[in-house]
């Protein structure tokens, strides 16, 4: 495999990792706030904070990892996206900042503060919306090169049906992923009242996820036919994704094996995300940046891959330890530790 492909695959894997852990996090924030509003917070919020408290910082690193890696492997992306995304990027940053800090303020500082919880919960839905626009922009048509200048066509993005279908998909996916994870977590904690609530959330958000996915397909056909046709070459990946979705929601509906159900949710998004990614290649930004045109110096590319492997040797055991202590330790999950 070419090194460029290795690079983008590893980065895509990290983005996928972020997609899963951040969705759990973003959705949980929203559910925590919703729980407070509907006065169910005594049932679910302790469960949510029990999971989130030790891991929220790790979630953030996945994201930093992705963009540092992207700029490192493909420095041209910094130039194009950096110039074009000043405003949307800054807005996303402000949202991430508010969310991260107010999470800490409300969780470690003043627990009863409703405003903190609101800022934390609301930003959780706006962030996926704003981050997903980067994926939209990568399809082309929203950035134009005029001479030496890179121009971002914000109004075109705001009026594009494709853009809105992606935003819609991002939000409902976040809520679905998060709810199905919390269902699993509540089940492990043997917390019946919480389980009932989050299971309902999961079932409620399952159908919009599929509807939104179809919408994105249709809108992409209008926006970028070439990409749409390439996606058809990988139809089997999307087929697998759909099957995984059906298995997952079936298990949750019949109250069986919530852990397996969540693994199928992960697989559902894995196939969809990688099907989308592989058909997008070689473009990082259609039509200006490809993984070949933007590739860094050969020496640096190899060094980065080596650093990746060395880093993963350090990270994976640490992550396993973290999960063992807080995710798979039944006593901790049940609140006995």
């Amino acid at each position: 495999m070419e090194i460029q492909l290795v690079g983008i695959t590893v980065l895509w894997l990290f983005l996928y990792g972020y997609l899963i852990v951040a969705s759990i996090d973003f959705g949980a924030g929203f559910f925590a706030y919703y729980g407070k509003l509907t006065k169910q917070d005594h049932l679910i919020n302790h469960l949510i904070s029990r999971y989130l408290s030790p891991v929220w910082e790790v979630t953030n690193v996945f994201f930093v990892f992705f963009f540092v890696g992207l700029v490192g492997f493909f420095p041209d992306t910094a130039y194009y996206y950096g110039t074009a995304l000043l405003i949307p990027g800054s807005v996303a940053l402000v949202l991430l900042t508010i969310r991260g800090s107010f999470y800490a303020f409300s969780n470690y500082g003043s627990r009863e503060n409703k405003l903190y919880l609101f800022l934390y919960g609301a930003s959780g839905l706006l962030i996926p919306a704003s981050l997903s626009t980067v994926l939209t922009i990568s399809e082309g048509g929203f950035i134009e090169k005029r001479g030496d200048e890179i121009v971002f066509l914000a109004d075109r993005l705001l009026t594009s049906p494709y853009s809105w279908s992606v935003v819609f998909l991002a939000i409902v996916s976040v809520l679905f992923i998060s709810a199905s994870f919390l269902t699993y977590y509540a089940d492990r904690a043997d917390d019946k009242p919480a389980l009932e609530i989050v299971r309902k959330f999961a079932l409620f958000w399952s159908s919009p996820t599929i509807i939104a996915s179809l919408l994105v397909f249709i809108a992409l056909h209008e926006h970028n036919v070439a990409h749409f046709e390439k996606m058809l070459n990988y139809w089997w990946m999307f087929g697998f994704s759909l099957i995984c979705f059906l298995v997952a929601s079936g298990l949750i509906y019949f109250r069986k094996r919530y852990g397996t159900a969540f693994i199928f949710v992960m697989l559902q998004f894995f196939f969809a995300f990688f099907g989308y990614g592989v058909s997008h290649l070689p473009y990082i930004l259609d039509p200006y940046v490809t993984i070949y045109s933007a590739y860094t110096n050969e020496t640096m590319g190899i060094t980065l891959v080596v650093a990746f492997i060395a880093g993963l040797c350090l990270l994976i055991p640490s992550l396993i330890l973290l999960m063992k202590l807080f995710l798979f330790d039944a006593d901790y999950v049940k609140g006995k530790k």
């Binding site: 690193v61 930093v64 990892f65 540092v68 700029v71 490192g72 640096m300 650093a307």
Partner: peptide, 15 residues
């Protein structure tokens, strides 16, 4: 990009 990258590794480890 190498030190930036290694920094995020260190940060990950700390987190």
């Amino acid at each position: 990009s190498l030190p930036l990258f290694l920094e995020t590794f260190a940060f990950f480890f700390e987190a």
